[in-house]
Design a binder for these strands. Structure first.
Lengths: 159, 159
DNA sequence: TAAATAGTTGGTGCAACACAGACGATCCTT
DNA sequence: AAGGATCGTCTGTGTTGCACCAACTATTTA
């Protein structure tokens, strides 16, 4: 009882994450517009680059979006030839979605164009800190949510 | 030319931020619902706690939301007595918005309830790393966007 | 052959906004 | 004291990003 251990457990990043993502997204929209991209396209492309060829429903899972909406998203991207849908030889029902060279290039351009935005939003952080942030985010983002929730099982919510 | 300096400049956190925030928000919604809160309420409360008493339009600025929509948000919060609007003695047009004790308590409860969510989304990160992440996010979030954009002035977009 | 699965299409509905107009209250000028 | 600007409020409109449902085709698997 005397412990009450100086609890840093209230340090929840959720709201901060939300807030920062919003600020970033608001600015990113206008910067991305001339490139014909929207923030969510960027997210998809980023995931695609990280994950290589994936089926659409795998994409739906990692993006945690309804698969019907993935279709439209990919239509956009494919119309711009940033992404390619190919039938999987193993299972011809499947579409293997992959970044095209143009896609990778455009993604890079976009990231480049976003430098200013990041400077603005992450202005309080030193370059090294930003790199740390990036690395933490990247690692957190590239874990499948499924394996996670499976690993969690039941948590007694001991608060 | 030969340099091509191993450029880590492509490490843009925007998309990752977006992605993670989304994953967090999706889960947070259901966890927060029993508490009568929505993610955006959480963000507002968090900002309010960090910033102390602020006018509504200051809030609109930091949340980067239209001030007319702030009204509704605050109405929700005030109806639940999590927030208080008082006339500013200096300028009686202004409302000084402040977290009530109930508000602070509810916020803490919410953060507590979100522990599981964070475990799920940030599962790949060790506790120490999460704390680092939190600290970085906190610092980045508590900088006024205005002073930032003013500091940037004109950037020649040298990419 | 039947049932399950991947993708597509179209439609509905909701919530989060942005934006605009009009208003009262209260500054701040001159 | 009068006029204009500012803060908050209310109302209403439109857009967008989704989730969700239903129906359909092509394909796989049982």
């Amino acid at each position: 009882m005397s412990a009450l251990p100086l609890d840093p457990s209230e340090h929840r990043s959720g709201a901060l994450l939300d807030h920062l993502a919003r600020r970033m997204r608001l600015r990113a929209e206008s910067v991305l517009a001339p490139l014909g991209l929207r923030p969510r396209h960027l997210v998809a492309l980023t995931v695609l680059r990280a994950g290589g060829g994936t089926s659409q429903q795998a994409l739906a899972t990692t993006l945690e979006m309804d698969s019907t909406n993935i279709v439209g998203l990919l239509n956009d991207l494919e119309a711009k030839e940033l992404v390619e849908r190919r039938r999987s030889p193993q299972d011809r029902r499947r579409h293997v979605v992959e970044l095209t060279e143009d896609g990778a290039k455009r993604l890079k351009e976009a990231e480049c164009a976003l430098a200013g935005v990041e400077d603005e939003v992450l202005g309080a952080l030193e370059p090294a800190e930003r790199e740390t942030l990036y690395e933490l985010l990247r690692r957190a983002a590239t874990t499948t949510p499924i394996s996670c929730s499976a690993a969690i099982d039941e948590e007694p919510d001991a608060c």
